[in-house]
């Protein structure tokens, strides 16, 4: 991978230039579809962008220097981590990547939840702490199926390189693995029925309760980018056609990502929020079952 390519991926597609507007688009789609399913009009499409600008324009609260630093650095880190993960997505498989980028991707995707947990604790609010605890418990619960699915895919493709995996993993493995990943999306994105970590009626905004103005804006951005990255990862893994022309690949990548947003929003609209223990049980049980199934298939199948 050349430096130019890497920069292109980080800054243009599927990185910054693509991801930020699409993050807002996805946030809007989620809100709009939810509204329509609930019989409401819903916000205009520029609403998430306006929200972001409005939050940016607010004066941050004065805080003790160390806390202020931590509370600014954590969302920045979350944004950066997600952007990095996005840059690794092999939308154009021949364009590069390196062996082991899967490991880096997993690590980068774990940064936002980790930052959220830390944010909950540094903000020194009891609701932040509760949200952080819940976030931590859930991330343990969903990490098992999430990682198992990715490991199964890697084992099936016999490679730790994302582009190889996305091209070569067998469908017998890919299917349960994709299902397991899809199951992990709602909790990673904190939407119903697994919106436990930011359950407004119980613990306000959870980990980000104490964040305000530009710091909150960054969290919102990080959240939108997580949508892009996670749906993007799923899209990349679900669409292996290696020899399709690059415009087609880009279009399909975007289409699958957006469709996934709609599905997630519809599921969220049709469900109530589960409790922490119930949500964790779903992942321990069904998530792990799918992940383990994928792994067993990957190992046993010739």
């Amino acid at each position: 991978m050349t430096v130019g390519r890497a920069l292109f991926q980080l800054l243009v597609f599927p990185g910054l230039l693509y991801a930020v507007p699409v993050a807002w688009l996805m946030l809007w789609m989620e809100r709009k579809l939810t509204a329509r399913l609930q019989g409401r009009i819903g916000p205009p499409f520029y609403q998430p962008f306006f929200d972001f600008v409005k939050l940016l324009a607010k004066r941050p609260l004065p805080r003790p220097p160390l806390q202020a630093l931590a509370m600014s650095a954590l969302p920045v880190l979350a944004v950066a981590g997600t952007l990095g993960a996005l840059a690794l997505l092999p939308v154009f498989p021949h364009s590069g990547g390196f062996t082991g980028d899967l490991v880096l991707l997993v690590a980068l995707l774990e940064i936002p939840p980790l930052c959220a947990v830390l944010a909950g604790f540094v903000s020194r609010s009891i609701y932040g702490e509760l949200g952080a605890t819940r976030e931590a418990v859930l991330s343990i619960a969903y990490s098992l199926p999430f990682l198992a699915a990715l490991v199964a895919l890697a084992a099936a493709a016999n490679s730790l390189s994302l582009s190889v995996i996305s091209q070569q993993a067998m469908w017998q493995v890919r299917l349960p693995a994709l299902l397991a990943l899809a199951l992990c999306l709602p909790v990673k994105l904190r939407v119903n029925p697994f919106s436990v970590a930011n359950a407004e009626q119980e613990i306000y905004a959870g980990a980000t309760t104490e964040f305000e103005g530009p710091r909150l804006a960054l969290w919102e951005l990080a959240h939108g980018l997580e949508w892009v990255a996670l749906t993007g990862l799923w899209a990349v893994l679900a669409f292996p056609a290696a020899n399709a022309a690059w415009p087609l690949r880009a279009v399909v990548f975007v289409a699958i990502s957006l469709a996934l947003v709609l599905v997630l929003a519809a599921v969220a609209a049709a469900t109530a929020r589960l409790k922490l223990a119930q949500a964790a049980r779903v992942y321990w049980l069904w998530g792990s079952a799918l992940g383990v199934l994928a792994m067993v298939v990957a190992v046993v199948w010739p």
């Binding site: 609930q38 119903n192 029925p193 919106s195 009626q201 109530a272 929020r273």
Partner: peptide, 16 residues
Amino acid sequence: AAEVIGFQTLFMTCFA
């Protein structure tokens, strides 16, 4: 009650 268990859609239905 629906809102409190995070069931926004049911909340909207009741209020409609």
